[in-house]
Write a protein that binds this DNA or RNA. Sequence first.
RNA 1: GACCCCGUAGCUCAGCUGGUAGAGCAUCUGCCUUUUAAGCAGAGGGUCGCUGGUUCGAGACCAGCCGGGGUCACCA
Length: 504
Amino acid sequence: MANEKQVNEYILNRRNNLKALKDAGINPYPVKFEYDITPSQIKEIFEKYDAAQLEELNKKVKTCGRIIAKRVMGKVTFMHIFDEGVKLQLFFAQDKVGKKEYKLLKKIEVGDFIGVEGTLFRTKTNELTVNVEKYTFLAKAIRPLPEKWHGLQDKELRYRQRYLDLLTNPDVRKTFLLRSRIISEIRKFFESKGYIEVETPMMQLIPGGAAARPFITHHNALDIDLYLRIAPELYLKRLIIGGFNKVFEINRNFRNEGVDTQHNPEFTMVEFYEAYADLRDMMRITEELFTTICDNVIGKRKIKYLDHEIDFSTPFRKMTMREAIVEFGKDIKFEDLNSKETLLPIAKKLEIEDAEKLNYGKLLSEVFETVAEEKLIQPTFITEYPIEVSPLTKTIEGDERFVDRFELFVAGMELANAYSELNDPDEQLKRFKMQLKEREKGDDEAQMMDEDFLVAMEHGMPPTGGEGIGIDRLVMIFTNSPSIRDVILFPYMRPKKEEKTEEK
RNA sequence: GACCCCGUAGCUCAGCUGGUAGAGCAUCUGCCUUUUAAGCAGAGGGUCGCUGGUUCGAGACCAGCCGGGGUCACCA
């Protein structure tokens, strides 16, 4: 991407050095370097040896990395290379590497990759260092790296050029390492319980399983529009019907909605289903999963998140949606929550938009979100969701208005959503029809009818518990990150407008 | 989508009440055999996000646009 405007003195200098290396018969981009030890292994193994021990050991190493600092002192030069988050110092003396080789060192600069052979020793200031005898040029950088001790601060550049962020800001590297370990732990957790990992379509004819606007794409050969999935739910249930009793999927969902500190258009969920399980089982699994991550990845069950201390000790608190409204809402009584008529004045007072247009269940959810959601700091299961907002969930015995569902809240964020899955095909048809009516009323997030899914369910679906957990938000909590962008390597960014480059 | 804040050298940042641009790192030249934010001496580097406007004069003031951050709305 040689942009005319970006050809500046830095790039010119570096290109000149590149040419000088080539002229000296050096391949600036060789195929391979056979190292026998990495900088981090050197630090790990030899940090405990003192100067005298190292001298006696006379340990030869062959290692490599990216140059991040260079200090020329006449006929000796110090460099630091960086590899896998670890810094290692190199020492070059003209006497040792040879006059010609030492002179060529001038063409090697910060950002370049280098391989070295030499012996380990300690400098006067006691730093473990490679006394280089031979070096090999590994790759040339023709753009400079960001400044060395402030790192890259500009948020826009950090997100757009995450590789620079990762190189210069150690905490960022840590966050993404932790993310990787958390996902690995989640995978191990489900596998150890006999779940199998599956992959279901990302491109769907009918985007089901959640209430959200989808992205639309087009298949040219078939000349049909397809949707990027908003959830894998309906496909995972087809697998339960197909006799896989425990399945999970860790993958991306896509929702065509606003972007903020808790929402990215594509985000990662783990969704899992277990035949013959119900909502209580899902609660237990959720508690166990969170404590497993605490124990195996973080090392403790009480963690700091922003201004809060979050305590993942089990059991997590459980409240019904209505109980939460009464607890956190001012002057709201339980009796007020039983009908649209009694809810309306409360909703109006809370300035909920178009409250009179909402049905009972939506109104109740809106009131809950306004009054309680952000106050649910400690892990809390909220249960008994209204049927109107839960078209895929079984009702509670004895009260047809509510369903057997929970959402888990931590630090005021929705982290998980679980159901005793609806498996009665006639009831499911009724629920889809309810959704269609809402859609006709203008709710473009109401769910679409999926007849193929209904046919699957008509073949018989066992009682099933299912759940989805938002991995990005979970990682936010465990890495103390205030924004979802801090836990997604390449978050959504508006494309940069092309600047017209005038010819000169 | 609304509102608030931000955009100055490769990077990190100053720049007053409007008077034609500054520092540190980095780069280039020279010196230097134990430095680590190496040091010393010197040099170069800018479409002040973009486009208009006000003004004798704009990095600064005004308008619009582009990009970013945040709050709210939306997203159960």
